[in-house]
Amino acid sequence: MAIARRPPPELFKLSTNTWTQPFWDATARHELVAAQCTDCGHFRMPPTPFCPCCQSQRITWTPLSGRGEVYSYTVVARAIMPGMNAHLPYVPAVITLEGAGGIRLISNVVDVAVADIRVGMPVQVVWDDVDGQGVAVPRFVPVTAG
């Protein structure tokens, strides 16, 4: 049974700005945080310069539990560009983050049988350190008992 692997690591290209840097700084510590408006409490991800609800620019970086659930996913089992074959199959997924007002992160479900992945599946974050860049990429695995 095919296990969900990780996409080619070279696809990740780190670039940051004032508004996104704190998210990536937290990944280095293996902490999942989300941008929350300091004034009205609305969460927004990816982080942007203004709160869409009150237009405030004040952000609180709220630590999250790292748990969530699969909102949707796709299974990539066929290479459409060079270098992909060794990494198939992988599962890009949209994850609804727990305790963050319903915001979602684009990530992957990994290390589980592809056939067992479902919309609504409870998941928890795991971290893949990125060589030489001082950050980590969040990915998700099914929640384990306990």
């Binding site: 690591p9 670039s15 940051t16 996913y73 796709t74 459409i80 990494h87 890009p92």
Partner: peptide, 30 residues
Amino acid sequence: AAYPATPENAFFSASGLVGPGHMFALLARR
């Protein structure tokens, strides 16, 4: 996958969504 590295793209590039077909598959599944 050929887009330049930007702060915005950094939030999806790692996931391996390398083409619109991958991205719209997520909407289709939902």
